[in-house]
């Protein structure tokens, strides 16, 4: 009888923990806050999780215009007027990866709170 009570209590505890864990992990996914910087100054901070629909942000610099495309959970450089377009070729910004960088127009797009745990990364811009 005593054993049965303990089994029920333990099972309930495990169930409650599992439900809580699922609830928390669904409610607070990894931080998706991205900063767009130009010349070292913050232009805009965006929480990619709270973006609805598609949005374009245009930045101007010495080498023409850059257009940033933002949608729910995603950010990328859609177009650039500089010659090499490395920022466009970079594709989507990934947490833990290199920031999107436009060297000619001094633009950096990066996650504010990276999931990445090492102190530095070699071979990638960070």
């Amino acid at each position: 009888m005593k054993n049965r009570v303990w089994i029920i209590v333990l099972s309930l505890s495990v169930l409650i923990c599992a439900v809580c864990w699922l609830y928390i992990s669904n409610l607070s996914p990894l931080s998706q806050i991205v900063g767009i910087y130009q010349n070292g100054t913050l232009v805009e901070k965006i929480d990619l999780n709270s973006v609805t629909g598609k949005r374009e942000i245009t930045l101007s610099g010495e080498y023409g215009k850059n257009t940033v495309l933002v949608s729910n959970g995603h950010i990328m450089m859609k177009s650039a007027e500089c010659p090499d377009k490395l920022c466009v070729k970079h594709g989507e910004l990934k947490n833990g990866g290199s920031p999107i960088v436009c060297l000619p127009n001094r633009i950096v797009i990066k996650f504010e709170d990276t999931s990445y745990s090492a102190d530095a990364k070699t071979g990638a811009l960070r």
Binding site: G96, G97, S98, Y116, A118, D119, A120, K121, T122, L125
Partner: peptide, 27 residues
């Protein structure tokens, strides 16, 4: 991406330097 560690971390431990995965530098 050229990394240089000067000394050790303030707590005396080594710096941790990750090597980018050539196929996906977020890994």
């Amino acid at each position: 991406g050229n990394v240089r560690a000067l000394g050790s971390k303030p707590d005396g431990s080594d710096w941790s330097v990750a090597i980018a995965d050539p196929d996906d530098n977020s890994k």
